[in-house]
């Protein structure tokens, strides 16, 4: 299905202060793929993800999501297709209660009240937080917050789920829960993380980003077992592969 396609063609991006973060990225992710993006701090992972829902526009090159090319007018449509989950759930949860927050996206899509209620309930159900719905976000634990942040995005039923460091502040149990949840999602998934074991568990394909370029792109098992490649990019073998 072409509408779940993510394609970047020779994308460059320069921040206003002159740092060039992306230096010619080309990639193509098709429907249903689960892609992990790994790389050192400052390699350009977050910058690249922000191109995928049109928050940043490439200085040069094109971004195609589904059948739309990213520009100022298509940006709104693209945001409906791509659900972006941010690193810090406090930035993502801005409404006074969990329910309101999850309902925010669907309401903006112009759905009817009944439909919104359904969507919210099923999204919260998926992440196992249905009982939190009347709570204000500041009464939640970090694990609960990130689960709700994910619910807030899946309530919009995006075709493509993009996550930036989804597990960085989770305890091992919440992290495991997240991994199982991600495995169940049928969306196209793009996950940037330093948690290589999470990528190994969830993603079938993996890209290594280094210095604004794609250094490697292939099957996760191959990429993440290539010790030399990983070490060149300030990474190391995933813990589960180190023991072998």
């Amino acid at each position: 299905m072409s509408h779940h396609l993510v394609e970047l063609k020779d994308v460059y991006f320069r921040y206003p202060d002159g740092t060039e973060t992306l230096k010619g990225i080309s990639l193509r992710i098709v429907h249903g793929e689960a892609v992990g993006i790994v790389g050192a701090n400052g390699a350009g992972k977050s910058t690249m993800l922000m191109h995928m829902n049109g928050y940043l526009m490439p200085s040069q090159g094109t971004v195609i999501i589904g059948d739309l090319e990213l520009n100022k007018t298509s940006r709104k449509e693209i945001r409906k297709k791509v659900g972006l989950v941010f690193q810090n759930p406090d930035d993502q949860l801005f409404m006074p209660t969990v329910f309101d927050d999850v309902a925010f996206g669907p309401l903006n899509l112009g759905l009817s009240q009944n439909k919104v209620q359904e969507r919210v309930a099923s999204a919260l159900e998926t992440v196992g937080c249905l009982d939190l719905s009347t709570k204000p976000p500041h009464h939640l634990s970090i694990g609960q917050k990130s689960a709700v942040a994910i619910a807030a995005v899946i309530a919009m039923q995006p075709d493509i789920l993009v996550m930036d460091e989804p597990a960085s502040s989770l305890d091992p149990k919440s992290r495991r829960h997240l991994i199982n949840m991600l495995k169940d999602f049928k969306h196209t998934k793009i996950i940037a993380s330093h948690d290589l074991d999470l990528i190994l568990d969830v993603c079938t394909r993996c890209m290594v980003l280094g210095n604004g370029r794609i250094m490697a792109d292939g099957l996760t098992e191959d990429v993440l077992s290539n010790k030399d490649l990983l070490e060149e990019n300030s990474l190391e073998l995933p813990l589960s592969l180190q023991k072998m």
Partner: peptide, 24 residues
């Protein structure tokens, strides 16, 4: 910086100037 990130999160969920609330 935080407000920037929050605005980004709002945009990515279709914010267009009015906060819709839902309550019966």
């Amino acid at each position: 910086e935080r407000s920037e990130r929050i605005y980004r999160a709002m945009l990515s969920r279709g914010f267009s100037g009015r906060i819709e609330t839902f309550r019966l």
